[in-house]
Design a protein around this nucleic acid. Sequence first.
DNA 1: CGGTGGACCTGCTGGC
DNA 2: TGCCAGCAGGTCCACC
Length: 274
Amino acid sequence: MPELPEVESLRRALQPRLAGRRLGRVRIHQRSLRYPVPAAALHRHLPGRRILRLRRRAKYLLFDLEDGPALVIHLGMTGRLALVGSRSLLETHDHIAFGLDGRQELRFNDARRFGLVDVVAPQGEPRHRLFRHLGVEPLSPDFSGDAMYRLSRGRRAPIKAFLMDARIVVGVGNIYASEALFVAGIHPRRAAGRIGPARWQRLAGAVRHVLDEAIHHGGTTLRDFLNFGGDPGGYGERLRVYDREDEPCERCATPLRRIVQSGRSTYYCPACQV
DNA sequence: CGGTGGACCTGCTGGC
DNA sequence: TGCCAGCAGGTCCACC
């Protein structure tokens, strides 16, 4: 599922169904995720506490709990959350079930186990190791072409890698990095430090635009992944370049290309992006 | 310091 | 039909 728009769509879907409800027993079926599941902390801090609201920071989902710490969930590559009846059968890779009032459970499922679950103290969050080094939120007012221009001076990394560096800007993953660069007309291999102020302005606008647009359509679903409600996210068919190698560019009809950068696929138009 | 590549896992697809 | 390399939307860390 999960870049910023998918996590944000999930947050918006879950918030009205979970805010105000009380957590019950936590059942852990698999303790080995990206980090070992902190079982003792989950059992100690969650049962009996009300969920106040859901927040998102970068690609992390945070459940603020009444009078206590926050539950943190990251979906990694294949993480999913499902709200189900407590008696419904466990599916393959259902790793943790968070009991809820009303005989329901929130289940965390993650085939590849790159996701993580943790508990953070309310005050400790900014200093927590997961959050300490995170860069700017791309949908916040702090994100601007000017700021990115300044941060990128002297950087020789290709712009694609720079956009995906969470220490600079969070939430932009492999799909939306390609999409934003296409919209801005910038070649993914261009050095970040060699993009001028005017083009950074366009690029920042493009990042914000593609993320907003994707959230609006409920995120992207590719292959067999599903959104929270079981609906496929509506944005997949609107992707301009991602996963469209050899298809004609929508602007100039040149066949789109796929290259590999830092081990990840990048898609772009060799004519429109310079 | 800054940048790249491998590691962590499982599952699906496409080419032979 | 069956097998297997290659690939998948993330992040961290060792190494150059």
